Simulated scan of single mutants.
Amino acid sequence: MIVNDLTVEQSAAAWPVFRIAPEAHSFPFEYSTDDLAALGTLVALESDDPEGRLGAWAQAFIHGTPQIRSLC
């Protein structure tokens, strides 16, 4: 008879583990006027999302309370 006993301890750094700009803590992101000019049409959705599925998917990656903001 072989008996095996194993203990696993998991740990992780507090979220986030890297520094990000305060405006990037919520989705949709709040862009400065200069950033919006640089991003141009890249901030526009390529297709409609009337059910909000894309927003819900993206929100799953953001920690904290969501804040609704306009991209423009």
Rank of each mutant, 00 (worst) to 15 (best):
A60R: 05
D5C: 10
A14Y: 08
R53H: 06
G55S: 12
P66W: 04
Q10C: 06
I68M: 10
F27R: 04
A12D: 13
D35W: 08
L71R: 15
N4Y: 07
V17Y: 10
A56Q: 13
A24M: 10
I2K: 09
A21W: 09
A14C: 05
V3S: 12
H25V: 03
A24R: 12
L36Q: 14
V43D: 00
T41F: 01
G64P: 02
S11C: 07
G52L: 06
D34R: 13
Q67V: 15
L6K: 14
R53I: 11
G52R: 08
R53F: 07
P66N: 05
A56L: 08
Q59P: 09
L6M: 14
Y31W: 15
A24W: 09
H63P: 06
D34S: 14
D5E: 12
E30T: 04
Q10D: 12
E23D: 06
H63L: 13
R53Y: 07
A24H: 07
Q67N: 09
V17K: 10
C72D: 08
Q59L: 15
G40E: 00
E51D: 02
L6D: 09
E30A: 04
A13R: 15
G52P: 05
V3R: 12
P66F: 02
Q59T: 11
D48C: 02
V43R: 03
W15M: 03
W57A: 15
Y31E: 01
F61Y: 05
E51W: 07
A14L: 11
T33Y: 09
A37W: 02
A12M: 14
A21D: 15
P50C: 01
I68Y: 08
S32W: 03
A24S: 13
Y31R: 09
E9Q: 13
E51F: 07
S11T: 10
Q59E: 12
G40A: 02
W15F: 10
V17A: 12
R53P: 00
F18G: 05
W15N: 06
F18V: 15
L54Q: 05
L36T: 12
Q10M: 12
D34I: 08
P28R: 05
L6E: 15
F27A: 06
D49R: 03
D48F: 01
L45P: 07
V8H: 00
G55A: 11
E46Y: 02
M1G: 13
T41W: 02
A24E: 14
G40R: 00
F18C: 02
P16M: 01
E9L: 15
S47L: 06
E9K: 13
P66K: 02
P28C: 01
F61W: 04
F61N: 03
A24F: 09
V17C: 07
W15D: 10
N4W: 10
P28S: 01
L39W: 01
A38F: 10
L39E: 00
E30M: 02
A44M: 00
W15S: 08
V3M: 10
P66Q: 03
F61R: 01
Q10T: 13
D48K: 03
L42I: 07
P50K: 04
